[in-house]
């Protein structure tokens, strides 16, 4: 992220120098900073509502019920995991939270699952096949209702904001499936991990 961030800023300044728009670039810095806070305020309401609903779903056991339904599929996708591993429940929960558009709920659960997968990893510095699969599931992030997008459409006065829900569902489903298929195919052509027992000191 350090390099990507730097790269974006570098390209910007270089392009602004080329197009002679350095003044609007400076303006953009100020407006961008201001806009960030405005977006956060817009989001606060819808996030509060959705996390509130999700909390009820979590406390009433609805989330873990859904997770239970998904367990058989999770076992198929993560063949290297022991059958009784707690990671399976976590992965199912992570998927469910993503499905409800709760990235903030999904992330901690997903990280918990990732830590569990790391225990079964033969090389602690490189990602195991199962870890790559979990990651692909999250980068594609299958979602039933794109709540934040809806919030923005409503905020800017759309007449029929819900119109985009179904097409988005089609796209997210296909993208999600291709992430899974992609990661499983790439798994076959990627060189296997070598056993590496020495763990480097983590620099985070």
């Amino acid at each position: 992220m350090n390099y990507i961030w730097f790269f974006i800023i570098l390209i910007s300044i270089a392009s602004a120098a080329y197009t002679g728009r350095m003044d609007s670039l400076v303006n953009a810095i100020m407006r961008g900073a201001q806009k960030s806070v405005e977006i956060a305020i817009y989001l606060a309401g819808i996030m509060a509502f959705w996390l509130g609903i999700m909390k009820i779903a979590e406390k009433s056991g609805l989330v873990s019920k859904i997770a239970l339904l998904l367990t058989p599929i999770a076992k198929k996708l993560f063949p290297d995991l022991p059958k009784d591993s707690p990671a399976i429940g976590d992965i199912a929960m992570n998927f469910t939270a993503n499905a409800f558009g709760l990235a903030n709920a999904a992330t901690p659960i997903g990280i918990k699952a990732m830590k569990e997968l790391q225990k079964h990893n033969i090389d602690k510095n490189s990602a195991s096949n199962d870890m790559c699969t979990l990651l692909a599931m999250n980068t594609a992030g299958w979602q039933i209702v794109p709540t934040t997008v809806l919030a923005v459409l409503i905020a800017s006065g759309s007449k029929n904001p819900t119109e985009i829900i179904f097409p988005t569902l089609i796209v997210t489903t296909i993208a999600f499936l291709s992430a899974i298929v992609g990661v499983k195919l790439l798994e076959k052509i990627t060189p296997a991990q070598k056993l590496n027992t020495e763990t480097e000191v983590q620099d985070d």
Partner: peptide, 12 residues
């Protein structure tokens, strides 16, 4: 957002 605003304003 600042970085991307810069990118957009720059004409890139």
């Amino acid at each position: 957002i600042v970085a991307v605003s810069m990118l957009r304003a720059s004409g890139a």
